[in-house]
Structure formats: C-alpha cells, structure tokens
Amino acid sequence: MKVKSLVIRAEGTNCDLETVEALKLAGSEVDLLHFNRILRNPSLLEEYQLLVFPGGFSYGDCISAGKIFADLLGAGLRKELNKFVEAGKPVMGVCNGFQVLIKLGLLPFSKDFVQQASLVVNSTGYFIDKWVYLKYNERSKCIFTKDSPNVIYLPINHKEGRFVAPEKILNKMLENNQIVYQYSSQSGDVEERYNPNGSFLNIAAVCNEFGNVFGIMPHPEKYVNKYQHPAWTRYQNLKEEGEGILIYRNAVNFARKF
C-alpha cells in the first residue's frame, strides 16, 4: 500500500505543484485539496498519513505571513489536527507552511495551539531569493531529516523568514534539540555572516518536541533533481537527485506505519 499524503492549499498557496511532485517522487500517493473542501468535511484528514502545508502567500500574508490561514485552521480543524499530531503522524510546513504552523502553535511545541515563536520580516526588509547552506543538527529527533548530510544546500524564497522567540523558548528548543537546520557556511560554520534574514541562532528549520511536526523556511521541494541547482552547469559530480528529496522520502517512509 502506498502512503497517502495530503497537500493542503488555500488562497495564495503557490508551491503546491512542486510539492506534489516531490512527494510523488518520494513514493507517495498525493491529493492536493483546497482548504475549503476539507473545512466542509474535516474527517477527510483521517484518510491521510502525511500532511504537508506548502509555500506561498496564503490569504496574501495579510496581518502577517500565514496568520490568517493559521487562524482559520485553528478555528475549523483544531480537533482533527490535534488528533493527527497526537497520533504521531508526520506534519510538515515549508516556507509559508512553516509560518502557518508557527502561528497555529503546532511549532515549536505542539501543545494547546499556543503561538510561542514567530517568523517576521527579514532584517533586510526585502524578499530574498537565494541558495543557502544549512548545517544539520545530528542530535535532532526530527523524523524528516534522518541521515541528512551534515550540510545541505537549498533555496530560500521569502520575505518573512526571520525566526524569533523568547530566550526561554529558545533554550527549551536547544535542550530538546528541536533546532534542525541553521544557516551556515558551505563547511557548516554557523555564523552571523551566513544568516540571510536575521533569524535568531541562524534558525532555518525546527521540529516539535516529538519530531513529527517539522517546519522549514528553505524549499526542499525546489531541489529534487540536479538541474534545479543554481550552478549545476559547473559541477560534474553533483548527484542526479537533489538534496531536498531526502526530507520527503523520510516523511513518506515514516508515514508508512500509520
């Protein structure tokens, strides 16, 4: 039996097609549904083993990025989402999806739907499209990044990607190894000069306390084959498969048990 994944889109979602493509490549069966349809029939969620919130500008990112979508989800699907997460099923948000999960309060801690951190406007003030190196935290229990290389390379495409949180929360995240990827140099040095958006602790991706909810600002679905790399014409030794596919494959493999 193939794993069934659900990609939820809303007004302004725009990375849905490549997300579906990455999940298919990772061996999943995928449905792409509008949030409005799920809202009409929330029990639909039970049919799926993996839930993905893709990138984009849900509801125009009005108020702040992902805020409206998060509020609508909280109001309409709270019970079903809670059940999904409590069962240990994997949930993933990329870029706007990450912003949604943070504002919904499923990240960094999946408890009581209380927002405890935020993703705010980049310190430059601008949207930025750029490829970045990400240092992996090997001690993280994130199920999405099992066997990740020490450093991976992915594009960021966002205006509100600066991760901020109170020190208490940051410390708790550090303690639990919930910081999964940090912006770094090619060799994995996590320093301020490699930080593209002013994120606290160079945070690029986090997981919840159990490792089954994952949010990442860079786009793994945009690097699933070699020819999406920005300098593929230079490097003969690049693998045919891009580094982002690992995350989807891990998710699909993990979801199999549900």
């Binding site: 725009n14 949207f127 020819y227 230079r234």
Partner: peptide
C-alpha cells in the same frame, strides 16, 4: 532587483537569471 523577485517558484527554472559559483 533580481533577488527580490522569486525566480524559481514552480521549481521549473533550469537556467536562472544569476549564474556561476556564487550566483
């Protein structure tokens, strides 16, 4: 200007507007 534009949403962009080692 180019970096303010998303030039790879859709994941279809094979040759991007900025090229080379450091883009």
């Amino acid at each position: 200007a180019i970096r303010q534009y998303d030039h790879e949403v859709g994941a279809r962009t094979i040759l991007k507007p900025l090229q080379g080692v450091n883009g």
